[in-house]
């Protein structure tokens, strides 16, 4: 449940001058695994996530989610967007239950879970608030909650904390570690932040740009459960030094 498999996947954006965003990528994510895609902007890491989400069609190759070809977006793959992308005319509660509602699930079947998830992400006092009344971090908590409420088999997170200040980012990372520790959902996490990738992931796939490729895969063997205290351990620093060397080496 929640396995992702890319076989020789390429993605080319058409137009007068075609741009190869992904070039012949092979990539697997196992059930319950937390994988980070790490790379500079323009390396195709968000494109890869969009393909898995079903937002864009692939140009070549095969993309399977739980052994089924991906054809369209769906609630089995919960996406957390960079800027949360909440619907600004709906309040927190309405944003979170939008999914179950359009899927015509009976209110009694999702109400308790939605309340529980909003409590976990620390927003139980904010059901009635509009997104514009929330801080960036709180908005992203809603973004995570609305994905989790659908009980997706995989979470696809596209630089979800990239727009937040350092302090808020740390608390969001701590929250995500805690939530994931309990759910063990498959997570595909796109980031350009090395610390974030090491802290969260079981495995980091380093990507390079033009054309977008995965150049190296690094398993992160730090013990779980992790917390933001791990950011300063010797093991952590060793991984960081290794990845920085890797990225310098491939960065021409």
């Amino acid at each position: 449940m929640g396995t992702i498999s890319l076989q020789s996947v390429s993605k080319t954006y058409g137009g007068a001058r075609a741009v190869v965003a992904l070039d012949n990528v092979d990539f697997e994510v196992a059930e319950g695994e937390f994988v980070a895609l790490l790379g500079p902007s323009g390396c195709g890491k968000s494109t890869l996530l969009n393909l898995v989400a079903g937002f864009e069609p692939l140009s070549e190759g095969k993309l399977l989610f739980d052994n089924q070809p991906v054809a369209r977006p769906g609630p089995d793959r919960g996406v957390v967007f960079q800027e949360a992308s909440l619907l600004p005319w709906l309040n927190v509660w309405e944003n979170v239950v939008f999914g179950p509602k359009v899927q015509k699930i009976a209110r009694s079947d999702y109400e308790l879970r939605a309340r529980e998830i909003l409590r976990i992400v620390g927003l139980e006092q904010f059901h009635e608030a509009l997104p514009v009344q929330l801080s960036g971090g709180m908005r992203q908590r809603v973004g995570i909650a609305r994905a989790l409420v659908m009980e997706p088999r995989a979470l696809l997170m596209d630089e979800p904390f990239g727009a937040l200040d350092a302090q808020t980012r740390l608390s969001m990372q701590a929250l995500l570690l805690e939530v994931w520790q309990n759910l063990k959902t498959t997570v595909l996490f796109v980031t350009h932040d090395i610390d974030e990738a090491i802290l969260l992931a079981d495995r980091i796939c380093v990507m390079t740009a033009r054309p977008g490729r995965i150049t190296r895969t690094i398993p992160i063997s730090l013990r779980r459960p992790r917390s933001i205290d791990d950011l300063t351990t010797a093991d952590f620093i060793r991984f960081k030094a290794m990845i920085m060397a890797e990225m310098r080496g491939s960065g021409h």
């Binding site: 977006p73 996406v79 939008f98």
Partner: peptide
């Protein structure tokens, strides 16, 4: 906003 539509599709709309 394209991402509003993507978000809605992702939630099963």
């Amino acid at each position: 906003d394209k991402n509003w539509i993507r978000a809605a599709l992702m939630m099963g709309a």
